[in-house]
Design a protein around this nucleic acid. Structure first.
Lengths: 352, 352
DNA sequence: CTGAAAGCGCTTACAG
DNA sequence: CTGAAAGCGCTTACAG
């Protein structure tokens, strides 16, 4: 359809067979320069006469030249690719982070590679690291959580960053879990509730521990009683079970739930026994991924996924392109969240 | 920590400096064979004495050899990489598909590359194709939807597949949207409802059109009146607005909503005007991503994301490794969904 | 400012 | 069954 192709003889784009991709050599021949100069133009190096550059650019366009990434990587070492090792991609939060990492990478002109980890153990992650090692400039690991970090084989000279808020053997960028919990509890206490009950995730979960710690310390600091925490497993069903246990206790007027899914279950349980939200009981969730779809709309802690994704890339690129590879102190970047107030939280009931 | 390293002299793994990755040459030297033979062992080619193979494998292990992907790709052409062009990764459905594609790719020993598209237009997608072209063996495009497919630059000899259920210029694998809608409407009619109202997505959306078509044709086939469809934009707010319009009409006893998010809004509107679900009105959603978190739990059409992901890879690999590149008829593979019955749908009310 | 030569780490014919 | 040579398409010194 374009003017400079000839489909009859099987040649197109300046005489190069359709079945073959154009190389620097093709461009060089057409522009009457060396492949050398083609390379300079392709990489925007200076020291090329504007006239020559124009000639080369035109030839590139004509033959549809894009540099062969493999050859470039092989020769120059750098691959301009960021590897991502996701944990649970089909989780809303993680999908947002991958999206943000991928967008930021693209803005910096980096490609993105994904390495699936069938079993989320140290050795599973190690195998993914091994697979990516060869073909990336740096690595982002998501959701390290309860992997035994000390068993990770962290290759020398491969920049890495984890989405985690703990100080690890590698740089990290994470959410302020405890801070988010603090916002939730403070919000509920300000509404006049005497104390706040807690529904946590599984006990091994670092995130759940941190959210619990934020909840507990805020209560303690305010001189309030600390009720025994309920334990769930992140699923709505486990939230429902915890909700049933709490619903019969008329002392319970405020519940902070460690994620939105379980909060959905807690609210269902409260509905079933006829306790009104928020008139009788206030509920606050965490993650803010489901909150607006629930009934009543759930007050929740929003995690700034986009910011985390961007910061991950930023930290990684400063290692790749910068100089701070050696013995960096690796203090984690902690990204704060915020409280989204919706209809599920309200003033404590008047009569106790 | 391992026995065969020597951290004192800065050499490890069989005398190779830590800062350099082991190459086939290193392995060859250690095993006293040619790089040739190393290559044969690395690629599981036959025609190597078991004895020799063992010697090479041991040397590989010792120096921690993994073949350089760039060199391999440069020399042999194939990259053993599948490129994915996602549309909206932070959408539950698409994240599931990417997860499934990535898992299937891994099982077949392929790597996965992701190309971000900042603006979802034909030219945006074309630019992503251009970026990946050089470094993948095949391409999966997700959510083509309303992109002008005829404007896509589909490279010659690059196997591609789209997640779409229409017959396109490239092979496709998609959900059976109309079939899903049929399941939903049939379910509601079987419950005794006289007819079923419909809340659709934006008019330009191909998916919404197909779901509407499934709804309409099922009603027509059953000889039922076809009420005017409501139009939303996939958001809960638009569902809420549609729900308010429908809620006051006492003739409405069954609503089929084109996605779960809008269904959440519809249910909220029904709640607000005091119409009971499912006693007064039954609601059925689509996608089954939010359904179990809602109150009451939403009957919804489940899409088999995992199956679509697997099939996408399968179709792509049969192009890459097989022979059917030329003028394939490109009939789309259509993956059926199923109905998940929950509490939001029930028998039609007795009195009209 | 431009070019001829070498080489990144593999694999693909071709010998033996 | 194994190896010496050539070359994939670039970029990196080194000349001029």
């Amino acid at each position: 359809m374009t003017t400079d192709t000839n489909e009859v003889d099987g040649l197109g784009r300046g005489g190069i067979p359709w079945s073959r991709r154009a190389t620097a050599k093709d461009v060089a021949a057409l522009a009457q320069v060396s492949t050398q100069t083609v390379s300079r133009v392709a990489n925007n190096a200076d020291g090329v006469l504007p006239e020559t550059r124009a000639k080369v650019l035109e030839a590139m366009f004509k033959v549809g030249y894009t540099p062969n990434a493999a050859a470039r990587a092989l020769r120059s070492g750098g691959t301009r690719t960021i590897g991502i090792i996701p944990h649970q991609l089909n989780t809303t939060g993680e999908a947002h982070v991958v999206e943000a990492v991928s967008a930021a990478a693209h803005r910096h002109n980096y490609a993105v590679s994904l390495a699936e980890v069938p079993d989320w153990t140290a050795s599973g992650v190690n195998s993914a690291i091994g697979r990516l090692h060869q073909s990336v400039s740096g690595l982002v690991i998501l959701g390290l959580e309860n992997v035994e970090v000390e068993k990770l084989h962290i290759p020398q000279n491969l920049p890495m960053v984890a989405s985690d808020n703990r100080a690890l053997a590698l740089p990290s960028v994470g959410f302020d879990q405890a801070g988010g919990a603090r916002l939730a509890v403070t919000h509920l206490l300000a509404l006049g509730h005497k104390t706040v009950h807690f529904v946590g995730g599984p006990e091994y979960s670092v995130q759940s521990q941190q959210r619990e710690e934020g909840w507990r310390s805020t209560l303690v600091a305010a001189g309030r009683p600390v009720p025994p925490p309920e334990v769930g497993d992140w699923t709505p069903m486990s939230g429902y079970a915890a909700g049933r246990r709490l619903a019969d206790n008329r002392q319970v007027t405020a519940i902070f739930v460690a994620n939105d899914e379980m909060a959905a279950g807690v609210m269902r349980a409260l509905h079933e026994v006829g306790r009104q939200i928020p008139e009788d009981v206030s509920v606050v969730g965490f993650d803010n991924v489901l909150a607006e779809y629930l009934w009543p709309p759930l007050t929740s802690i929003h995690q700034d996924f986009a910011k985390v994704g961007e910061t991950l890339v930023q930290v990684l690129l400063s290692q790749i392109e910068g100089q701070e590879n050696d013995g960096a102190p690796a203090t984690p970047s902690v990204i704060p969240g915020w409280l989204e107030v919706r209809a599920s939280s309200g003033p404590a009931p008047q009569s106790d």
